[in-house]
Design a protein around this nucleic acid. Structure first.
Lengths: 135, 135
DNA sequence: CTGGCTGCAAATCTTTTGCATCCTG
DNA sequence: CAGGATGCAAAAGATTTGCAGCCAG
């Protein structure tokens, strides 16, 4: 992962903690997940700083914000193009590495990127519950 | 669009107004868009009722909730499978009707559905601004 | 009539912001 | 030592909920 100093930003203990937490993290955590986990051993950590750091990383392209979860934003430190699969029961999100090379829709848009969201139910949840139904 | 009476729900003037507003609507409006538009000529309309109606429709499969806009949920009365394209400047959303028949990612998930989000800049916005940059 | 629906307002949840103080470079 | 970063708390948005009264079926 890029270091902050390389992109003209200051490195602080708080930012280091966020960077370390996210490095190689495949959980697609929410801001709250990140805050909770870090503040366990870093009591002087505020929500504002988490968001501040996430925004800085996002603006410098070393973090991607996911909209696949309708409830809140999820963050992905993996910046190479890929897609996602989410379990609608346990809300777990997995990476999907398949390259679908999609044809651009014909329109007057200049297409910048795309993202595929798969929705499903993981084996663990299927064993526990009736597939689908409530929510 | 399905009528509420067909699915065991009551039809009220408020619900009728929402139904009428959404019928054939291709704007992918937010809850606030819907509320604002309807309350113009239907002063006795509350936010709670808009959400109540949207939730009822969603639960009965006659409305789809979109997560493509990171800021808020958008609603789409078109329930046949399709994808979307959003201008990152003006936030306009267009339907994408191409059938990409995506291969399911190999995983222990039971895949229920998928949705492709395209991001880009529409011609109108490209004329006005430097493409990308801030935001 | 009666239970589902409405409107209002308060509550929740996520994310953002203002500002005094701190500390990296 | 200057300006960016932090922490706190309050604010802003979006969405949900509690509840008394209303009205569609």
């Amino acid at each position: 992962m890029k270091k902050f100093s390389n992109i003209g930003l200051r490195m602080t203990p708080q930012r280091m903690a966020v960077l370390t937490y996210l490095e190689g993290n495949k959980m697609h955590p929410s801001a709250e997940d990140i805050y909770k986990s870090i503040s366990k051993e870093f009591s002087t950590m505020s929500f504002a700083t988490v968001y501040n750091t996430l925004t800085a990383m996002k603006n410098h392209g070393c973090l991607v914000e996911l909209t696949i979860d309708p409830d809140k934003k999820r963050f992905d430190p993996k910046i190479s193009p890929h897609h996602h699969l989410m379990c609608i029961h346990c809300r777990r999100i997995l990476d999907v590495e398949i390259d679908y090379h999609l044809a651009s829709p014909e329109s007057d848009f200049e297409i910048i990127g795309n993202h595929i969201e798969f929705y499903g139910i993981c084996t663990k949840c299927r064993r526990k519950k009736v597939p689908k139904a409530e929510e």
